[in-house]
Design a protein around this nucleic acid. Structure first.
Lengths: 139, 139
DNA sequence: CATGACACTCTCTTTCAGGTAAGTACAAAA
DNA sequence: TTTTGTACTTACCTGAAAGAGAGTGTCATG
C-alpha cells in the first residue's frame, strides 16, 4: 500500500490526528469554494469587472485577454450561480447582455486583493529564491 | 473568426483598451505566481504547516488528507523553490526530513487567510445563491 | 537473510480542463 | 437575399495534470 497517505486511524479516535480543526463539512465546502473561485479566469473576470464596472459579454472577453467564448460563458455562468455577478438581459434584437458584480463579488474582489498585493510585493523575493534553488540544484 | 476574443487593436494605440493597467510583465508574473500558489495542494500544505509548525514528510501527507506521495513531493519541492518552506535533511539511517514555513511562507499564509475567511463568512450566501439559480434554471 | 522504516522516484493510465470551429436565433440593413 | 451583429451552444480533440502502484537505497533489527 503505497497510495494516498492515510492517517493511522487505528490509534486513539479521541486524540484524533486533527484532520479537522474547525468543522468537517465546512472545511470541505470552503475548499470547494476556494477551488472554484481561485480559478484563473474567475479571478481575471473579477478584476476586469472590479475595474470597469458594468460590461457586456464581448467587452469582458476583450479586456480579459485570450479567453475563448466557451470559457467566458462558463466562467460567467458559474459566477452568476455563486452570486458574484448579475446578468442583465435586454431583450432587443441583436442580443444585449450586461454583467456587473454583486456586493458579494466586490467583497471577494477585496479579499483577493490581499493575495494580489502579496504577489506583487514578493515577486522579487520569489525570483531570488528560485534562482538560488536552481543554482543549488544544478550541482 | 470565432476564437479567442481579441481586442480591436486597429483603433487608437494611444487610447489603448487598458490591457495593462500596471505593467506588462509584472502582471504576467503576478498571474503566474498566483496560479502556482493558489493551487489546491499548496494551499492545504500551507495551512497544515501554519497550524502545526515543523513537520516531516509522511506527517504532512497524513494531515493534508488524500494527497499522493507524488503530489506531496511535487508540491513541497515547488514551495521550497519559491522560498515558502525550508527543507531540513537529517542524514540518519531511515531518512528524516523536516519542513517548515519561511517568513515568506507565513506572510502568504496570512494573505490567504483573508480569502479563507471570506469563504467561511459567505458560505451560506453562496449556497443560497446557488439554490436560487438552480431553481430559476429548472424552469 | 528477510523485514521494515522513510522519503522518495518512476512509469503507466485515466481524467478533464480548455481550445478550435462551427452552428443557432433573430431582425435590420445593404 | 445575403450579410451583419450579439451572445451563446454544441461537438470534437488534445495536452497536461493527477492518481495508482511498484521500485529504490540504506541500515538496524529480529
Amino acid at each position: 500500500m503505497t497510495a494516498p497517505l492515510t492517517a493511522p486511524e487505528t490509534a486513539s479516535a479521541a486524540t484524533d490526528s486533527r484532520t479537522d480543526d474547525l468543522d468537517p463539512r465546512v472545511e470541505a465546502l470552503v475548499n470547494e469554494v476556494i477551488g472554484r473561485v481561485a480559478d484563473k479566469w474567475t479571478m481575471i473576470v473579477l478584476e476586469v469587472l472590479t475595474e470597469h464596472g458594468e460590461l457586456r459579454f464581448t467587452r469582458i472577453g476583450q479586456l480579459a485577454g485570450g479567453i475563448s467564448q466557451k470559457m467566458l460563458t462558463q466562467t460567467l455562468r458559474q459566477m452568476e450561480r455563486d452570486g458574484l455577478v448579475v446578468r442583465t438581459v435586454h431583450p432587443v434584437i441583436p442580443p444585449h447582455v450586461e454583467y456587473r458584480l454583486t456586493d458579494l463579488g466586490y467583497t471577494l474582489s477585496e479579499a483577493f486583493c490581499g493575495v494580489w498585493r502579496w504577489a506583487e510585493a514578493n515577486l522579487e523575493r520569489i525570483e531570488t529564491a528560485r534562482a538560488a534553488f536552481d543554482a543549488r540544484a544544478a550541482r
